[in-house]
Amino acid sequence: KPRTPFTTAQLLALERKFRQKQYLSIAERAEFSSSLSLTETQVKIWFQNRRAKAKR
């Protein structure tokens, strides 16, 4: 499955949200993903990867 190329605007929004909160609830994820027109899975995986990156 090819990787999702996120737009610059989407990445900025994701990073901004991540700075506020490293873990999203299911409801927050649903709302946030639709506002960015991404799937919930894409947002979930992005947050997982971003948390892993923050640990390094």
Rank of each mutant, 00 (worst) to 15 (best):
L14M: 10
R16M: 14
F47A: 02
Y23P: 02
Q10N: 07
F6T: 06
K53M: 15
S35E: 14
W46E: 04
N49P: 00
E15R: 02
A9K: 12
S25W: 03
Q48T: 06
T8I: 11
E15D: 05
T4Y: 09
V43S: 01
A54Q: 13
K55Q: 13
R51T: 08
A13R: 08
S35Y: 09
W46T: 02
F6Y: 07
E28G: 04
P5N: 15
E28P: 01
K55I: 12
F18Q: 03
L24G: 01
Q48G: 04
Q22L: 04
V43D: 13
L12S: 13
Q42L: 04
S25N: 08
Q20N: 04
A52P: 01
R3Q: 15
S37H: 13
R29H: 12
A54M: 10
N49K: 02
K21T: 12
K17T: 06
P2E: 15
T4R: 10
L24C: 01
Q42R: 01
Q42D: 13
Q22C: 08
K17L: 14
R29I: 12
P5V: 12
R50E: 15
V43C: 07
E40L: 04
R3D: 15
R19C: 15
P5L: 12
K44E: 15
T41L: 09
Q48D: 09
K21V: 13
I26G: 12
E31F: 06
K44M: 13
E31V: 07
F47N: 07
A30V: 11
I45D: 13
R51V: 11
F47G: 01
L14E: 04
L38H: 01
A54H: 11
R29Q: 15
T39N: 08
F6H: 04
P5A: 08
Q42W: 00
E28T: 02
Y23E: 14
Q42A: 13
A27S: 14
T7C: 02
E40V: 05
F18S: 01
K53G: 03
R51C: 10
A9E: 14
F6G: 02
S25R: 01
E40N: 07
R50I: 01
A13V: 08
S35P: 08
E15V: 03
L24F: 02
S25D: 12
F32D: 04
K17E: 05
A9G: 11
Q22F: 08
S33V: 03
Q20P: 00
R50H: 02
R50A: 13
R3I: 14
V43H: 05
L24E: 00
S37I: 03
E15T: 03
I45G: 08
L38C: 09
R51M: 10
K44C: 09
E40F: 07
R29L: 15
L24N: 02
Q22Y: 00
S34C: 10
E28H: 00
A30R: 09
L14W: 01
N49W: 14
A30L: 09
S37W: 04
N49I: 10
Q10W: 02
L12G: 14
S34V: 10
R19P: 00
L36T: 00
E28Q: 03
E28L: 01
K53L: 11
F47M: 04
S35H: 10
Q22A: 12
K17P: 01
K17D: 06
A52K: 05
R56Q: 14
V43Q: 01
S33M: 07
Q22K: 09
F18C: 03
E15S: 02
S25I: 03
S33G: 07
L36Y: 06
R51D: 01
A52S: 12
W46Y: 00
E28V: 00
R56A: 12
T7Q: 03
S34G: 07
R50G: 00
S35W: 06
F47Q: 03
T7V: 02
R51Q: 10
Q42H: 00
L11E: 14
E28S: 04
P5R: 08
R29A: 15
R19A: 15
R29N: 15
S25Q: 03
I26E: 15
R56P: 13
L14T: 02
Y23G: 05
F6L: 10
T41C: 11
T41H: 10
A9I: 11
K44Y: 08
I26D: 14
R16S: 15
I26L: 14
S25L: 00
Q22S: 14
T7N: 05
E40A: 08
S25A: 06
Y23W: 10
S37D: 10
V43K: 02
K17F: 06
S25F: 05
S35N: 02
K17R: 09
R16C: 14
W46C: 03
E40M: 00
A9Q: 11
T41M: 10
R3V: 14
F32Q: 01
F18T: 02
N49A: 09
R50K: 09
R29Y: 15
L36Q: 06
K55N: 10
S35Q: 15
L24P: 03
P2S: 10
P5I: 12
N49E: 15
Q10D: 06
S34M: 04
R19N: 13
K1V: 08
T7Y: 03
K53I: 13
R56D: 15
L38P: 03
E31W: 07
L38D: 05
I45M: 11
K21I: 10
L36E: 07
S35A: 13
F32A: 00
L11I: 08
L12N: 14
A9W: 06
P5H: 09
L14C: 03
I45N: 12
A27N: 15
L38F: 07
T7R: 00
F6V: 00
I45V: 11
Q10P: 04
R50D: 01
T39E: 08
A54K: 06
K53F: 07
W46K: 05
L24H: 02
K55F: 07
L12Q: 14
R29S: 14
K53D: 12
Q48Y: 04
S34Y: 02
Q42Y: 08
W46D: 00
